[in-house]
Simulated assay, not measured.
Amino acid sequence: MLSTRALSASKQLSRKVSVLGAVRAKHTVPDLDYDYNELEPVISAKIMQLHHDKHHATYVANLNAAEEKLQEAQAKNNVAAQVAVQPAINFNGGGHVNHSIFWKNLIGEKNGGGHLHDGALKTAIEQQYGSLDSLTKAVNGKTAGIFGSGWGWLTFNKALGHLDVIATANQDMPSSVGHVPLLGVDAWEHAYYLDYNNVKAEYFKNIWRVINWKDVAKRYDNAVAEHKASKN
């Protein structure tokens, strides 16, 4: 089986487009740090390939198209067209950002998936939630309560200066409500249906086996550092 690096190498080329004389870089689908089958049996290779190469790629393509329309509208000083394209930018931009975080949040069990190491994040989780098990229940409960499609998140709440558990609808980003995303659980059907059918609770339960806590901890450390710097 070819690695995802080889399969998606062509997507990683930084392409440029010219729109009314201006040049900007197009968004691209980020490469995975692992092969499609590394997350099995929690998430199948088939889902990973479809999710990464089809669904995420569609968000990226639509975001690039929407930004080109926006740039054209700005060049023509067409305010109505600028307003009209904004929902597409928000939705597809959110899809791109949320999935880019999601891929980094995952890693195979054989490579450390599911293991929370000692450190600032573990201490914060235990202080606020009592244990990792209690945190997972809080995230799963919030995620299961999503009506329709969306995301469950462990975040850093910038206003309160500590961890928080929230859910966002569709492809809304935690940053839109003042939160720094640390860990996202994709609750869209395309993330689990081929493996779990309509039993999404099993998907929410099993995904913790492949969480890359090193990545989550790094995001937490960065969020705390930025928060402290903003207070000085």
Rank of each mutant, 00 (worst) to 15 (best):
A73E: 05
A73R: 03
E226T: 12
K11E: 12
V29T: 15
Y36K: 00
G93I: 09
A57W: 05
W208G: 01
D118A: 13
Y193T: 07
D33Q: 12
G148T: 07
W208I: 00
T136E: 15
D215N: 11
G130P: 02
A167D: 11
N78K: 03
S149T: 08
A124P: 00
Y220V: 02
A81F: 10
S18T: 08
A229I: 02
L194N: 02
G114A: 07
H99F: 13
P30A: 10
H96F: 15
G113I: 00
M48K: 00
G184D: 03
Y129D: 08
N111G: 10
S149P: 02
H117L: 14
R15F: 08
A75R: 10
A223H: 04
N212S: 05
Q82C: 14
M173C: 05
G145R: 13
H51V: 07
A66F: 08
V216R: 02
G119F: 01
A80D: 11
K158Q: 15
G94L: 06
T123I: 08
Q12R: 15
A138P: 00
F147G: 06
G94D: 07
W188K: 04
K231E: 09
T168V: 06
L132V: 12
W188V: 00
V224F: 05
H179K: 13
A84W: 04
N78L: 02
F102D: 10
D195K: 13
G113N: 01
K69A: 15
S230V: 02
A217M: 01
S3R: 10
V210K: 04
A6D: 11
V60S: 05
V180Y: 09
V216H: 03
V23S: 08
S14Q: 12
D221T: 14
F156A: 06
L50W: 09
G113E: 00
A73Y: 10
N77D: 08
I47P: 06
N170D: 10
I125G: 01
